Amino acid sequence: QVASGNGDRDPLPPGWEIKIDPQTGWPFFVDHNSRTTTWNDPRVPSEGP
């Protein structure tokens, strides 16, 4: 069983990049398509309500 969020081996969607926040050391994700950033890994399906 693979733990949720453990998709580091999967490629990011086109136009996405991983960067590290220098203050926290946490990775965040840059979507160059929409010029936005998020803490949520785009490779992990979001949980519904």
Rank of each mutant, 00 (worst) to 15 (best):
K19R: 09
P11E: 13
E47A: 07
P45R: 08
W39V: 02
P13V: 01
H32T: 04
N40M: 08
V2F: 12
S46L: 10
D10I: 04
P14K: 13
G7I: 15
S4N: 09
P42T: 00
N40W: 14
W39S: 06
S4T: 10
R9F: 01
Q23E: 12
V44T: 07
G5Y: 15
T37W: 05
V44Q: 10
I20S: 09
Q23Y: 04
F29G: 06
N6D: 11
N6M: 13
P13T: 04
F29D: 04
H32F: 00
W39P: 02
G15Q: 00
N33L: 03
W26S: 15
E17G: 04
G7A: 14
P45W: 05
S34L: 08
N40P: 07
T36R: 09
P42E: 00
E17T: 04
G25S: 14
P14L: 05
H32G: 03
A3Q: 09
G15I: 02
N6A: 14
P13L: 01
V2S: 10
E17Q: 09
H32A: 01
Q23I: 05
N33A: 07
I20C: 11
S34P: 01
T37M: 04
K19N: 01
S34N: 11
T36M: 07
Q1N: 09
D31L: 00
P14M: 03
G48W: 02
V30S: 01
W26V: 15
K19C: 07
D31T: 03
D31E: 00
A3S: 07
H32D: 00
T36D: 00
W39Q: 01
P27W: 12
N33D: 03
P14T: 11
L12G: 10
G7Q: 15
R43D: 01
S46D: 12
P42I: 00
T37E: 04
D8A: 13
F29A: 00
N40S: 08
D10L: 05
D21T: 04
K19S: 08
T37R: 02
V2R: 04
D21K: 05
P45S: 12
D41V: 02
Q23A: 11
R9M: 07
T24D: 00
G15Y: 10
